[in-house]
Nucleic acid binder design. Structure first.
Length: 320
DNA sequence: CAGCCGTGGGG
DNA sequence: TCCCCAAGGCT
């Protein structure tokens, strides 16, 4: 959960996740969709799919016990170089260097490591520095301390150097401008797009479709929707999708607006009502479509975008 | 290596 | 309002 997600965002979800899946066996037995439902709203949903697969692999290959060596951890879905080292170090007290964004920032500054964070050369120098720093006794505590130092003191901007225990030996501070370490890769500018979503209701339920497997947002339920650069284009695509479902867009009712930012795209959302094109309504069959009550949908595997659409349509309550 | 994946909080 | 950033990994 903590991959690219802050402790504050994770903490309440971590508690409820462990309440729902208290151990690896219960996680391994659960359907992937149940794990995604518990993950709903946390983002980066591939992490939940990986976690589901990883639990099953641990049961199958390691007797239900998380392995203690780096190589076996690294072989689990969702365990990259960092996470394997972090788990080995923090959980098993293995002397493995784990350089997350915080540790990378701290060590980049302490050693004034040039170059862009994430490049192979830079990453290698950070790992060497981390390895040199790890003590033989309780290396996990040192890993945790480095992370905490980066999270609380060695901030990305305006670091609290006067309060830093490493200030006397920090080359970045000595250089006069610790903030320039590490150099961050440039990011593409924010884009914009429009989403047209169709909400069709029947007997108190609404129709949602499920995306397939590994795709983006795979395994999550969504209202029928289409994304395009302009509203007319998105609306046109939505109309085609609805027609294939035996539905039609209701043009008499003005669309409800919403907005959402997903990665580097700002989305303007227009939520249309949809109606059956012929009576009786074509029963939507297959595992990819289902009619949901509001309370069912509230506990379902859906993204925040889907929740916003449901609320804009008046189908889901506007929440706490 | 580049591109992509979600979301919420903070400046 | 807008950008930055976060206990990264996969393709």
């Amino acid at each position: 959960m903590l991959q690219q997600t802050t402790v504050a965002a994770v903490l309440p979800r971590y508690v409820s996740f462990l309440d729902r899946f208290p151990d690896i066996d219960s996680l391994a037995r659960a359907k992937e969709e149940s794990v995604l439902a518990e993950w709903s709203g946390l983002g980066y949903y591939a992490r939940a799919r990986h976690l589901s697969r990883a639990a099953r692999q641990v049961v199958r290959e390691h007797g239900g016990e998380l392995p203690r060596d780096i190589a076996a951890l690294r072989a689990l879905p969702g365990f990259g170089e960092y996470t394997a080292a972090a788990v080995a170090s923090l959980a098993w007290d293995v002397r493995a260097p784990a350089a997350d964004a915080n540790v990378t920032r701290v060590l980049s500054r302490v050693h004034a490591i040039p170059g862009t964070a994430g490049s192979r050369a830079h990453r290698q120098r950070v790992l060497v520095a981390a390895t040199e720093l790890l003590p033989l006794a309780r290396p996990g505590d040192a890993t945790a301390a480095l992370m905490d130092l980066g999270q609380a003191i060695c901030l990305p901007r305006r670091p609290l150097c006067p309060r830093c225990p490493l200030r006397a030996e920090c080359a970045g501070l000595a250089s006069g401008d610790p903030e320039r370490y590490p150099r961050r890769p440039s990011k593409p500018p924010m884009g914009r797009a429009t989403v047209a979503a169709g909400v069709v209701r029947r007997e108190g339920r609404a129709l949602l479709l499920r995306r397939a497997g590994r795709a983006s947002l795979g395994g999550l339920w969504e209202f029928p929707s289409a994304q395009a650069e302009t509203l007319p284009a998105a609306k046109e695509d939505l109309g085609l999708l609805l027609r294939s479902l035996g539905l039609m867009l209701d043009d008499a009712t003005p669309p409800a607006p919403a907005d959402h930012t997903i990665m580097r795209r700002r989305l303007e959302i227009a939520v249309f009502r949809a109606l059956p094109a012929e009576l009786p309504i074509a029963p939507v069959t297959g595992g990819g479509a289902r009619w949901w009550t509001p309370s069912e949908l509230d506990r379902a595997a859906v993204s925040t975008l889907t929740r916003k659409i449901g609320r804009a349509a008046g189908f889901l309550p506007v929440a706490q």
